[in-house]
């Protein structure tokens, strides 16, 4: 059953409350949200394996703090989409503004268009797949998880990086401090193939380059490698 919610008729708080009230429910609950009109903080704090389809563009912090839910935005999103996501999937069919997927601990964020600056900043385990290009300072201080970019990356990619893995198919304007290109081993090709499949993106993993931390800026010790 699909529940329709119209933001022209229902206030934003009521829409979010209806979505959040599904916490603890079973899958096969679906919502369709129309007339988002760039609203902020839409579909945030979800905590159930529900399906939410937003028909139009949203503002700041769409699908923030997501757990378990599958959110699809048929439009573009403002700053901070899927910020601090824990699990679930968020798919943006248009573009994403700055700091997409920031601080995310888990789940999958897919941006079919471009993401602007600071994509994946301080990511902590989230997987992010961007079909277009990303802006400057992306994956700044990224700790864990995977960032996949089919297009190009802007300046200072992966500055002060910890143990997140970055895969870029196009050009990189410049690498940030302590970020270096690393060899694509078979395990990375397998990982990338799986990420691309989960994001429903057609691309050859062998066309990507891998970037990671040179581990000179933070106190990395090989004995602790399992912790990352």
């Amino acid at each position: 059953m699909t529940t329709m919610l119209d933001l022209n008729e229902t206030p934003l708080r009521d829409v979010n409350a209806a979505l959040q009230a599904t916490a603890g429910m079973q899958p096969n609950t679906a919502f369709e949200i129309v007339n988002p009109r760039g609203s902020h903080a839409l579909a945030v704090g979800l905590n159930a394996p529900i399906s939410v389809r937003i028909k139009g563009s949203t503002g700041y912090y769409c699908a923030g703090m997501n757990q378990h839910a599958n959110v699809i935005v048929q439009g573009s999103v403002g700053p901070g989409v899927a910020e601090n996501m824990m699990s679930g999937t968020v798919v943006v069919e248009g573009d994403a503004s700055q700091y997409a997927g920031a601080t995310g601990h888990g789940g999958l964020l897919v941006v079919r268009g471009n993401a602007s600056s600071r994509c994946g900043i301080s990511m902590k385990g989230i997987d992010i797949v961007v079909q277009g290009s990303i802006g400057h300072m992306s994956a700044f201080m990224a700790q864990k998880g995977n960032l996949v970019v089919l297009g190009d990356a802007g300046d200072a990619l992966g500055d002060s990086l910890y143990e997140a893995r970055l895969f870029v198919r196009g050009s990189v304007a410049s690498l940030g401090t302590d970020c270096v290109e690393k060899e694509m081993l078979p395990e990375h090709v397998d990982l990338l193939r799986d990420l691309l499949a989960r994001a429903e993106v057609e691309a050859d993993p062998s066309e990507f380059r891998r970037y990671g931390s040179a581990r000179t800026l933070y106190n990395f010790h090989i004995d602790n490698a399992q912790a990352y």
Binding site: R37, G38, S57, G59, Y60, S76, G78
Partner: peptide, 8 residues
């Protein structure tokens, strides 16, 4: 617009 809301 500072935000997309201004353009809708």
């Amino acid at each position: 617009g500072s935000e997309y809301r201004a353009l809708v």
